[in-house]
């Protein structure tokens, strides 16, 4: 593969791991970055067109599919798509009922969105690594990273949203005083001298949750994607299908589990935010 492009294996992999970033160049003009250095120069005021785009496309796909089923939803005999959608909804509803002990109508649809959306984003991994980038290359697009969950921006975007929800519901349920009280006086108890230790530990606990959430998804997906890319880069074309399918089978399990774990932990964290000690 790599020889066709006149790239080394390292360059090939690097190429596949580079985002299509749009932002302000060092010279002040706006445009697409053509190298990692240019991306660095753009700083925060830039956007990864590819992962962002795919994530929105997949989210929209989820919404449209489920909205179609929802519009036709009746208590009569369900058809194919409706069956599938209802099965998902039922499973997630049961999980939420089991794991979430507060009373909140937002949690179940939130969990559904997270699970299906992340699953779809992960499932982009299974598309052979060169198909979509090559297709876009025909239109002169230099980079295309198709799996949104291999972009830490995406996973952190999700997990920070979850963190915001956690803080929001903590304050909503326990009041601002209750929330700060928990920060200041847990876990060691109400003592003025223990406040720094308590604050440190609780803040750490609060911050580590979204970080581990995001890194777990990112790491797993990048590892899977990397294995696909290495298969594509190192092996001759005629034998690629064999390791590809072997890994795809295992990876199918991993992407489902990772989407499930992300959803599960979101539910658990939000449930914790609803409980007062």
């Amino acid at each position: 593969m790599s020889s066709e492009h006149g790239q080394t294996t390292g360059e090939y992999i690097q190429h596949h791991l580079t985002n299509l970033t749009y932002g302000q160049h060092a010279d002040g003009s706006w445009g697409i970055a053509h190298s990692a250095e240019e991306v660095k120069e753009m700083g925060f005021a830039a956007i990864n067109l590819d992962t962002m785009g795919w994530s929105i496309v997949l989210g929209a796909l989820f919404i449209i599919l489920f909205r179609l089923a929802a519009r036709k939803a009746t208590s009569g005999v369900p058809g194919g798509l409706q069956n599938f959608v209802e099965y998902m909804v039922e499973v997630i509803d049961n999980i939420v009922k089991e794991s979430f002990h507060g009373k909140n109508d937002l949690i179940a649809p939130l969990a559904l969105t997270i699970f299906v959306w992340i699953f779809l984003m992960n499932a982009m991994d299974l598309v052979p690594v060169d198909f979509i980038p090559r297709f876009f290359a025909l239109f002169g697009v230099p980079y295309m990273k198709v799996v949104p969950s291999t972009d830490p921006n995406i996973t952190f975007g999700l997990s920070i949203s979850v963190l915001c929800l956690m803080i929001f519901y903590s304050i909503k349920v326990k009041g601002f005083g209750g929330f700060t009280g928990e920060l200041l006086f847990q876990p060691f108890g109400k003592n003025i001298f223990l406040i720094p230790a308590n604050l440190f530990l609780e803040t750490m606990g609060l911050v580590v949750k979204p970080i581990s959430l995001a890194l777990r998804l990112y790491g797993n997906m990048l590892a899977g994607e990397l294995v696909f890319i290495i298969i594509a880069a190192m092996l001759p074309l005629w034998i690629q299908w064999l390791p590809y399918f072997a890994w795809a089978l295992l990876h199918l399990l991993i992407i489902t589990i990772q989407a499930f774990v992300f959803m599960m932990l979101t539910i658990v964290y939000l449930s914790m935010a609803h409980e007062s000690h």
Binding site: G219, N220, I254, V261
Partner: peptide, 9 residues
């Protein structure tokens, strides 16, 4: 899933 995460990273 939890176990896999750190080694995957």
């Amino acid at each position: 899933g939890l176990l896999d995460a750190f080694s995957a990273i």
